[in-house]
Design a binder for these strands. Structure first.
Length: 475
DNA sequence: TGGGGTTAT
DNA sequence: ATAACCC
């Protein structure tokens, strides 16, 4: 049979003989009843086995605030948005403060709690991208999840490091951080070896985050995104954990409810409960046919795979953001004037951000939430193309992009809200999206004539927004 | 429940 | 344009 070897099978030169089988540390406790681990047959170049890390910053907003003002470091600290403590440091957690806790409850639990307003996300967003950029230096395949989590596909990096290692060095490999379940490592198992190297890279990432940015966080290393994410939270502040394949089922079954599976949200969990599915094993063993009929084939197949710990979704590089938005929730907005003032405020911030980014948004959207006693916060939106003459003024330090943009947004507003009738809004948000690198289609170029909205008269003369304003590349 | 984000339909 | 998901 095959040699146990380093993946891309180093040319015959060096042989890993019996001594390549290192004293398998505690291997006799191995799960499979001490049976020697069979050699892994992973075809060279096959992507069937990946090494993924999930990096999760500790109470991110609170950390950013503590870096800004070190005097807060040893005090219980909460970050407040409106009447909520959205996150808090570990000092505060020890005293009973939880994430998303009402400010009153938090103050009651912990009267010494220091609160900082965190409604302006600018510094958090900037720090968040610094983290992503730092991780991209290790490997370009980095996917953001919110402001404080990132996935990195380490498969290639691990492969390269393994190629550099001599067999005796492989024999001396050690894990960095925890091993889930305290499972014994078997260095003759290539999957174990690859995950150990992943754990070392994860440790280097966390060290770099701390040295360069002053941030601490957790990491989880596993063979897919689901498992990496689940395992990253096992040891909590500022620690890391690697999951070896034999413990996957233990990890997934450690969840007490299907809602804890990332990808199964509020709605799906409710529908599953209605089917009598509440824990992971229920979902694993439920009839696929019925599930598909109930949830649609796509969701059904995906979540049932997730319940088994399977997740083939790739780490998709996030790159620069696809949209910029600013929102503000309000107690009550019931006049057009109030709305206009809010919209101007949101827009001013957005214009600064867009200016910094360098790309140009080609679409603008207005989002509202109406007051309604019991409807679960459903939002409504209207969007339209940004006229090209406005787009061109966007990065130029020009200020009279405000006026035309406000005009557009107020038209969108009146399209959604009948201002002649009483209304009560509890949220306003403005979003710039459809971002493009540059205005490429110039008059007289091929692109110009190939862009339908430019070379022909617009189809809808009766739109509220004049299409004579020639929107480029909006089709 | 805040103030963001993404993808699928 | 909305609905689902993520933080």
């Amino acid at each position: 049979m095959e040699k146990r070897g380093v993946e891309p099978e180093p040319e015959g030169g060096r042989d890993e003989e019996e001594d390549a089988a290192p004293a398998m540390e505690r291997a006799e406790e191995g799960v499979a009843g001490g049976s020697p681990v069979h050699d892994q047959v992973v075809p060279a170049g096959s992507s069937s086995s990946r090494v993924i890390v999930h990096v999760d910053l500790d109470c991110f907003y609170a950390q950013v605030e503590m870096i800004s003002n070190p005097e807060l470091k040893d005090k219980p600290l909460g970050v407040q948005q409106k009447y909520l403590v959205v996150t808090c440091n570990y000092e505060a957690r020890k005293l009973g403060v939880k994430k998303l806790m009402n400010v009153r409850d938090a103050k009651e639990k912990c009267p010494q709690l220091v609160l900082i307003n965190g409604e302006d996300l600018t510094r958090y967003r900037e720090m968040s991208y610094k983290v992503t950029e730092l991780l991209e230096e290790f490997s370009p395949v980095v996917e953001r999840l919110g402001f404080d989590e990132n996935f990195v596909d380490l498969t290639e990096m691990v492969g390269k490091r393994l190629q550099q290692l001599q067999s005796d060095e492989i024999a001396a490999l050690t894990v960095s951080g925890h091993v889930y379940n305290n499972q014994a490592v078997n260095l003759r198992d290539l999957l174990h070896v690859r995950l150990l190297v992943g754990s070392q890279i994860a440790a280097e990432m966390r060290e770099a985050m701390y040295i360069q940015l002053g941030l601490t966080g957790c990491a989880g290393v596993a063979s897919n995104k689901l498992l990496a994410k689940l395992v990253s939270g096992v040891f909590k502040p500022n620690q890391q954990t690697v999951l070896l394949p034999e413990s996957s089922q233990d990890l997934i079954h450690s969840l007490n409810h299907i809602k804890e599976i990332p990808g199964i949200g509020y709605k799906t969990a409710k529908r599953l409960e209605a089917l009598g599915i509440s824990n992971v094993r229920d979902l694993q063993t439920f009839s696929s046919k019925i599930l598909e009929k109930e949830l649609g084939i796509s969701v059904a197949q995906r979540i049932q795979k997730l319940s088994l710990g399977e997740d083939h979704s790739p780490v998709t590089p996030s790159g620069p953001p696809q949209s910029f938005s600013e929102e503000d929730s309000l107690k009550k907005c019931s006049s057009e004037i109030e709305a206009k003032n809010k919209i101007e405020e949101l827009l001013a911030s957005l214009l600064n951000r867009v200016c910094q980014d360098g790309r140009k948004p080609h679409t603008v959207r207005l989002i509202i939430r109406r007051y309604s006693s019991e409807k679960h916060c459903s939002r409504e939106s209207r969007q339209c193309p940004i006229p090209s003459h406005v787009i061109q003024k966007l990065g130029t330090g020009n200020y009279d992009v405000m006026t035309p943009m406000v005009d557009i947004l107020m038209k969108l507003f009146r399209n959604m809200v009948n201002v002649k009738m009483p209304f009560h809004l509890t949220l306003l948000s403005v979003c710039f999206c459809n971002l493009k690198a540059l205005n490429t289609a110039k008059k007289g170029t091929i692109d110009y004539y190939l862009t339908p909205s430019l070379s022909t008269t617009s189809r809808s003369g009766k739109r509220s927004f004049k299409m004579k304003d020639t929107h480029m590349e909006d089709f």
